[in-house]
Nucleic acid binder design. Structure first.
Length: 424
RNA sequence: GUGAGUGUAGCUCAACUGGUUAGAGCACCUGACUGUGGCUCAGGAUGUUGGGGGUUCAAGUCCCCUCACUCACCCCA
């Protein structure tokens, strides 16, 4: 740890073998599910002109003020490594004149500059879906259902869904105003931190753990009570749909989301396995954003899932044997035959490998074990004389002889049986 | 951006209030076992104690700087 000459940049990570595979499995589950829900993949640049993100996240947001990787290119254009997905997607939908409504999904790396901690990186991976042009509260419910289904398929059982509505252009400012007014009148009873919160994020005061502040909040105006009739109806319809589909959720009036573009429904998924950064995914409606980008008035809703947080929530899986056969050869006399067998296995879609350097069989078995192979095909003088191969199951240590013609089938059966066994 | 904690072998960690040659387990290599991994036994290799400076007769240990990692705040995936 002390020596390496080159190290990865702060906040980045290497996905070394078992984890890289786990990552792509999660991505596969996401792709299949997204397609089942009618989403189509969109691939857009990893960097955009800076104003795309300034526009989408909001000038005052933390992302824009302190978390963006912004740089000038050689022609002095300001570019930014994407800190979030929605802005670029909206830009691409308009620029390519995609027909709206449309449902899109995407996945890839994102970048935010900040101090790394558990579940937070400077380069991180997100899986997202966006439904543009659908206004129904049933779509909100469906998006939430999508997230829930995704986590369920990955076996994340302790996941809680939080739900809120932050109102619209009309009722949100009115509520904020009322809240600030109320809190200001009790300013002297709030802790110092809350006095600051009052200025830039008054809703956060609800999260304060100080008793004095909680006492003040008892009589504070509640977020839910100030929704306009339309927003209120929308929110109730979302809940009714979720109820009907048996999806459990917690109402949380403080759930605000940090990006300026959200309105009405906001939601997030949290897991207890993560530490302080417990949100594994979140999203909400953004009915004004497309218009803000110069497009037609378009209702929209999206969801973003944090890949590495999802993997944290999944926990460590037991290291299973790989789907891999190892060919063991006895001496130079058997080397040609061994290579033929190797090729036959591969031709049948069975991952196979051999150790050319190890001349002692003992070494070859060690290599097989170290590689995590699930079986060894052994080719020695006895086998060649008898017209068979020996096949050793590395999980049980049992070894059998199979006729040359039955090798492929037997190996396939063995590997399949093992992958079923390790999955339980 | 703010705060706290931790850096000793490939990994997990020891080393009393500064005191001789910095240790152990796991992993690794060799052999017992020239047709068999995991088990057992016997041997073996391994360190600029993250880096730099300072105090001291003497620094892994104390002080300063720096770097890295970790956790938390802010905020979010």
């Amino acid at each position: 740890m002390s020596n390496p000459k080159h190290t990865r940049p702060k906040g980045t990570q290497d996905f070394v073998p078992p984890r890289a595979e786990q990552k792509s499995k999660v991505e596969d589950v996401f792709r299949h599910l997204a397609e089942r829900f009618g989403f189509q993949e969109i691939v857009i640049p990893t960097f955009e002109y800076t104003d795309v993100f300034v526009k989408s996240s909001g000038t005052g947001s933390d992302i824009v003020t302190k978390e963006m990787y912004t740089f000038k290119d050689r022609a002095d254009r300001s570019l930014t490594l994407r800190p979030e997905g929605t802005g670029g997607v909206v830009r691409a939908v308009l620029e390519n004149r995609l027909r709206i409504p449309c449902r899109l999904y995407y996945l890839g790396p994102y970048f935010r500059y900040g101090r790394p901690q558990k579940g937070r990186f400077r380069e991180f991976f997100q899986l997202g879906v966006e439904a543009l042009g659908e206004a129904s509260p049933l779509v909100d419910a469906e998006t939430i259902l999508f997230g829930d289904e995704f986590f369920r398929e990955l076996g994340i059982s302790d996941c809680i869904t939080r739900l809120n509505s932050i109102g619209c252009r009309n009722c949100r400012p009115a509520y904020q105003h009322k809240l600030v007014e109320f809190l200001s009148s009790h300013k002297d009873r709030l802790c110092s931190e809350c006095q600051l919160r009052l200025k830039h994020n008054p809703l956060r005061v609800f999260d304060c753990k100080q008793e004095q502040c909680q006492a003040v909040l008892k009589d504070a105006p509640k977020p839910g009570d100030y929704l306009c009739p339309e927003c209120s109806r929308h929110f109730k319809a979302v809940q009714a749909s979720l109820d009907k589909q048996g999806l459990r959720y917690e109402l949380n009036g403080r759930l605000v989301r940090g990006l300026d573009y959200y309105n009405r429904t906001t939601f997030e998924f949290v897991s207890s396995k993560l530490g302080a950064q417990d949100s594994i995914g979140g999203g909400g409606r953004y009915d004004y954003l497309v218009e803000d980008f110069g497009g037609p008035q378009t209702p929209a809703i999206g969801l973003a899932i944090g890949l590495e947080r999802t993997m944290l929530a999944m926990g460590e899986k037991e290291q299973a044997r790989r789907r891999l056969a190892f060919v063991v050869w006895m001496g130079d006399a058997e080397l040609d035959e061994a290579q033929k067998v190797l090729a036959r296995l591969r031709a049948q879609g069975i991952p196979a490998q051999m150790d050319y350097d190890a001349h002692r069989m003992k070494h070859q078995f060690k290599s097989a074990d170290a590689a995590g192979a699930s079986c060894c095909v052994i080719i020695g003088a006895d086998e060649l004389a008898k017209g068979v191969y020996s096949l050793k199951d590395l999980t049980t240590g049992r070894q059998i002889q199979v006729p040359v013609s039955e090798l492929i089938g037997t190996v396939q059966k063995l590997i399949r049986a093992q992958s079923v066994a390790t999955r339980r």
